[in-house]
Design a protein around this nucleic acid. Structure first.
Lengths: 249, 249
DNA sequence: TTATATGATTTGTCCGACAAATATACAGCA
DNA sequence: TGCTGTATATTTGTCGGACAAATCATATAA
């Protein structure tokens, strides 16, 4: 039963102005660094009050599309692609569903950069990773200290040379830490079971495959490294599915 | 030579208010659907003018964190994780570097969901994909019509059951179309060369591996399917690297 | 009891004003 | 003539008040 969500149809002036500004920038073919008219001119052209214009501009500023310097006016700037995500991705605000989506997203992305890593990896990368692994702090049951976890995977993402991918990792890391803490009572038994079966893959193991230039081995190992979360997500989905079935009856 | 970018240190009142509001919601442990105080109260509590508060609220509304219904006041709502991205990811605004980053991001993600696809795929998915492939329009040289391309890959993403991943595909699709058009003179010769070598992988081929439940085969085929872009990105990077070296000399 | 009208509340929009910061122009001095 | 300090003008940042529109609550009338 889909919930009929009455979408707020009221498109405010601010919404329209925001859209018109974007259209204006595109039509004028303005590039990063180009100046844009001042607030008085813009509000006059658009036929709205300055306060309304400022609300729209404020949104664009937040997204990094506009920079303002007092007196020198406003200029267009290159927006951060994931800048908007940064503010939204707060584990304390997101729903559980959203958290799991991000978890799955992150794992998929790291699985997907395997070939990029092996294509780009340099001796310096190996050195750095070795140093990181050496000073890593690992708790029992496949649990690294958050900082060690962050450093290792961030370094992996850097190898791709893709800034957006690296930035993504930085943004979702707090979500990972939060999930690991919030659901540790679910994760712990899974980790223990994996350990009993000898299926725990550490950063040390991953680094081994990198050094051996064994891409397939690395991919399989990485999949095992994330297996605990995959099992966890599947369990959660089944629970939810089960609940839905019960409700339907 | 790194450009010394003087970061605009001026944190405006609006920035502070935006931050304080988020902190306030978290500290009060407000959940989706909970009402928040009206604008007069908030501006009084924060000690700022209503216009400043409204600029901050406007930002949060844009991100979908707040919904407002006239007279009934404002309530917290679940923000769309990628909502901020949607507005920024406009190929006409983004730099070439950013476009390539997104291209690489997208390819990595689709490579990364292979195992999820094979874990979740159902007969209905196969049926739908077969229908999509059947009505697909393919130009010469590995080029599908944008709609066919979009429909096929969107259907793949759906199999993961991860809404954020599916939404991501929707957002970046315009970028893919744009890149393919803008750089077609670069892409065409690569595609021709791949075709000569018999390394073109079509949607039909991908579907074959899905039907055969051959995950490794699918992964390798998908990598080939994206090979044209990977080659293209590498060429671009080398060109840029070369330019930098020349400049350094 | 029900329907309508009235009032109150809250967001959306407009307007005007001033402060702070700084680029520009101008004047004064070496 | 060239440099420097000052005044001015411009533009963003912030404040405060005002009214309209929408709608919930209440009271009144049929």
């Amino acid at each position: 039963m889909e919930r009929l969500k009455i979408q707020n149809n009221s498109v405010t002036l601010v919404d329209q102005v925001e859209d018109k500004l974007l259209t204006y920038f595109r039509e004028k073919n303005l590039q990063t660094g180009d100046p844009i008219p001042n607030e008085m001119e813009l509000s006059a052209s658009l036929g709205v009050a300055r306060s309304v214009l400022r609300e729209a501009l404020s949104r664009l500023k937040m997204m990094g599309m506009i920079e303002t310097r007092t007196r020198r006016g406003m200029i267009l700037s290159e927006p951060s692609i994931l800048g908007g995500m940064k503010r939204v991705v707060d584990p304390r605000i997101l729903s559980e569903d959203a958290l799991f989506d991000i978890l799955g997203f992150r794992i998929a992305l790291e699985m997907g950069i395997c070939s990029d890593i092996f294509r780009n990896i340099m001796p310096k990368d190996i050195e750095d990773l070795e140093e990181i692994v050496k000073v890593s702090i690992m708790y029992e049951n496949n649990e690294y200290a958050p900082f060690s976890e962050f450093t290792f995977h961030t370094r992996l993402y850097q190898i791709t040379g893709n800034k957006t991918i690296a930035e993504f990792q930085n943004i979702v890391h707090p979500v990972m830490t939060f999930v690991k803490d919030k659901f540790k009572e679910y994760l712990a038994p899974i980790n223990i079971k994996l350990k009993e079966e000898g299926r725990i893959v550490t950063h040390q193991d991953l680094l081994h495959y990198l050094k051996e230039n064994d891409e397939d081995g690395y991919r399989k190992a990485l999949e095992q490294h994330f297996e605990v979360y995959k099992i966890f997500i599947r369990q959660k989905n089944e629970t939810i599915h089960h609940q839905k079935c019960v409700v339907k009856q």
